[in-house]
């Protein structure tokens, strides 16, 4: 919990244009976010550019962090993943990604949300493990490799509509498992 509080504190200071806080946040989180950019983009130079752009977004949008009700790491990872996916899809040409910062939460039910998040964090590996291996791979492919339904249908050699039914069912199974 204290690591999370530290990041909260840094983000609060970044809203006030505190450069020292920004550099501290970079040093605490850049390796994780770079790992995510690398995983999505699979290209070191491009991941470096993406990481730089991600931190520019963080600097410019820190004031919006609070309204999402997310933990700091969830917010940071969401920005990094979505930015990297945008780049990936621009490279491939076309496609539009949900812009998460357009979504604003209702004032977060703090402790309850934190308890749910902590429970999910403990269970996520087990719950992914309960999914059929190829279905878990499809979930990871969509989130971390930016695969579209067309990509997934080709990879698993099934019709597109079947792929959609299949992935949606897997996601709901995952959600049920996480909330058990």
């Amino acid at each position: 919990m204290s690591a999370q509080t530290d990041l909260e504190d840094l983000l609060a200071r970044i809203v006030l244009r505190d450069r020292a806080a920004f550099r501290a946040l970079f040093s605490a989180t850049s390796a994780k976010l770079f790992g995510i950019c690398l995983r999505v983009l699979n290209d070191r130079a491009e991941a470096e550019d993406a990481l730089q752009e991600v931190f520019i977004k963080i600097w410019n949008r820190a004031d919006r962090y609070k309204v999402t009700g997310h933990s700091p790491m969830t917010w940071l990872i969401t920005i990094a993943r979505n930015h990297a996916i945008d780049r990936l899809r621009a490279r491939k040409g076309g496609g539009d990604t949900a812009e998460p910062d357009l979504v604003v939460a209702d004032p977060a039910p703090g402790p309850e949300a934190q308890a749910i998040a902590a429970g999910e964090a403990r269970r996520i590996a087990d719950c992914l493990g309960e999914l059929d291996q190829s279905r878990a791979a499809a979930v990871r492919g969509a989130y971390l490799e930016g695969e579209t339904y067309a990509d997934l249908a080709a990879r698993f050699d099934v019709p597109l509509n079947t792929m959609r039914t299949w992935l949606r069912r897997s996601l709901l199974t995952l959600k049920d498992c996480l909330s058990r």
Binding site: K32, G35, I36, R39, T68, H70, S71, M73, T74, I77, T78, R81, P100, A117, E120, A121, I124, A125, L128, V139, R140, Y143, L144, L174, K175, L178
Partner: peptide, 12 residues
């Protein structure tokens, strides 16, 4: 967003 980010935080 939270569920997927949690997955990424643990796996990447």
């Amino acid at each position: 967003e939270r569920r997927f980010a949690t997955m990424a935080e643990q796996e990447v």
